[in-house]
Amino acid sequence: MARGRPASRATMSVNAEQVRHVAKLARIAMSDAEVEAMVPEFNNILHWVEQLAEVDTDGVEPLTAVIENHLRLRDDVVDDGNCRDDILKNAPDAQHGFFAVPKVIE
């Protein structure tokens, strides 16, 4: 089973439009100048990571941990929660026990 191995090893690069798209997905406002500056930075990172693709990994199972380790599961026990004041403490606005945010209706 190929577990999440990249299907293609073609060289990736991004342009200004893609940088804007990523910024929008991350809800980050960027000026045109910042976008322009970011394009080569993104491409440098991509290029650097792509060096990994030069290693032949055919037939090698993806490594999920460097030491033998298994996912620990918890029992179905309620032992947390009931800390509304803590939860809401960092909220810019809270009313009647709710987080209050600018109206969002999709």
Binding site: G81, D86, G97
Partner: peptide, 25 residues
């Protein structure tokens, strides 16, 4: 289930708002 998928907070329906929330949630 009694507790949530990745935390120990309760799942019961109809509780007071934000009382069944852990720091994970």
């Amino acid at each position: 289930s009694d507790a949530k998928l990745f935390s120990g907070a309760a799942t019961a329906f109809g509780a007071e708002p934000n009382t069944q929330v852990s720091l994970v949630d």
